[in-house]
């Protein structure tokens, strides 16, 4: 176990280590970069969610807006699930035009 998890925090304080990644979603109307933040929980609050990954942008905005995410018992599993989720639905642009 990583030493930072022994830092003496109370489980209710939900200490996490953040990991950042970025990936380009290739689309016919232009590439879009998604930044993925993975939260590694010192004390997992939910079953199977030791690592929780979430993208910085939504997809499928015009019908059912979805924030790509993924989780698992390892960093790699959460990242892989999140990348699959990013690929699943089209990025349809943000409401503010970004």
């Amino acid at each position: 176990m990583s030493s930072w998890k022994f830092s003496g925090s109370d489980p209710s304080e939900q200490l996490v280590q953040l990991h950042h990644f970025a990936i380009v979603k290739r689309q016919p109307d232009g590439d879009v970069e998604f930044v993925i933040t993975i939260r590694e929980h010192a004390t997992p609050q939910k079953r199977g969610m030791h690592f929780y990954a979430e993208a910085d942008k939504q997809t499928n905005q015009n019908t059912a807006p979805f924030t790509p995410c993924g989780w698992g018992s390892s960093l790699e599993a959460a990242l892989e699930q999140c990348i699959i989720a990013i690929r699943r639905f089209p990025y349809e642009g943000a409401a503010d035009g970004k």
Binding site: T63, A64, F66, G72, Q81, I84, R88, F89
Partner: peptide, 20 residues
């Protein structure tokens, strides 16, 4: 009893199909 992120995507895909 269990859903992973792919399963969550399945629910969103169903909602998308129904809404369309």
């Amino acid at each position: 009893t269990y859903v992973d992120s792919y399963g969550v995507g399945e629910l969103v895909a169903c909602l998308t199909t129904i809404k369309k």
